[in-house]
């Protein structure tokens, strides 16, 4: 075990992974960034970025993307919190089963899950046929090929991330805190609002940030459930790259998307991280 063989061992063990990372990740990312800076005439320039920011249409797409991302993130929080709390409050096989049910759908391809929602939300889908046969509606509700359908698909796709982020945070809570609260006269709701909820803030923050960033870069669900009427940043990019074949513009949009993600993540994190938050949860 000389120094030499130690170094050699590290090098041999890491080499395949690093070569892969360098060749199939760092190199293409760099060259993609360079492409986004290519102007139509061939030289370097910010033309593609300028084209995006000078056209109100694209601003609208950006705004709609962020809105859908925010609505989805909040929806997963509202729907996911009870599930995570239930997981944290149960144990043994109950918790195991719930964890399994949360994770499994998430591991099946998004295409399949979206296909299921096509069947649920379509004009002849489960919901519309049920409502019509009950006589509550005369004509099918438009649940598909719009923002609503897109958001439903997104919530289904990403709620697992939210639940797991919340659960990780809720599992850490000392059960004696609730007991201490109740000795001090706090009722159930008060205990939740004053103890459990504030202590799960890190989970809420990381869940929101994670879901938001996943949503705004997804294009499969908007294509399948939103249809041509729903254009978001990711579908715009997809069209530019694979259909219009305008690579400089497509790559520029995708970098604007990335920058938006970072910006929103930073702003939301800042907003959450009050002085007290940092003192309590900081490293």
């Amino acid at each position: 075990m000389t120094i030499f063989s130690r170094r050699a061992a590290i090098a041999v063990l890491l080499a395949p992974a690093l070569v892969l990372l360098l060749g199939v990740f760092i190199l293409p990312m760099f060259s993609m960034f360079v492409t986004s800076l290519t102007s139509p005439e061939g030289g370097l320039g910010l033309d593609s970025y300028a084209r995006f920011f000078t056209d109100g249409y694209y601003w609208g797409v950006l705004g709609k993307t962020a809105t859908i991302g925010a609505i989805t993130a909040v929806a997963t929080l509202v729907l996911g919190y009870p599930v995570a709390l239930f997981m944290a409050r149960s144990d043994g096989w109950v918790r195991g089963v719930i964890t399994f049910v949360v994770i499994v759908p998430h591991l099946v391809s998004v295409v399949i899950r979206n296909f299921g929602w096509l069947m649920v939300l379509g004009d002849n889908g489960v919901i519309n046929s049920a409502l019509m046969s009950l006589g509550w509606i005369q004509r099918p509700l438009q649940l598909l090929y719009n923002e609503f359908g897109t958001i439903v698909g997104f919530v289904d796709s990403f709620i697992a991330y939210m639940i797991l982020a919340l659960a990780a945070s809720l599992y850490n809570e000392d059960p004696n805190l609730a007991r201490a609260g109740s000795i001090l006269g706090a009722g159930r709701l008060r205990r939740f609002l004053t103890i459990t909820l504030p202590l799960s803030l890190p989970g809420i923050l990381s869940g929101l940030v994670l879901v938001f960033s996943l949503v705004i870069s997804s294009f499969i669900t908007p294509i399948l459930l939103g249809g041509p009427r729903v254009t978001v940043m990711a579908t715009l990019t997809y069209q530019q790259i694979l259909i219009t074949l305008d690579w400089p513009f497509g790559t520029a949009i995708s970098f604007i998307l990335l920058a938006t993600t970072l910006l929103v993540v930073t702003v939301v994190t800042r907003a959450f991280e009050t002085k007290r938050y940092k003192e309590v949860f900081g490293a």
Binding site: V83, F86, V94, P105, F115, W117, D156
Partner: peptide, 26 residues
């Protein structure tokens, strides 16, 4: 203890049914 009936559990189960709904249909 084993959860008896809880509103929390009911809501959780409803959400979970929603997430497996695509498979229940397909």
């Amino acid at each position: 203890t084993r959860p008896k009936f809880s509103w929390l559990g009911l809501v959780a189960v409803c959400v979970l049914i929603g997430t497996v709904l695509p498979f229940l249909v397909i």
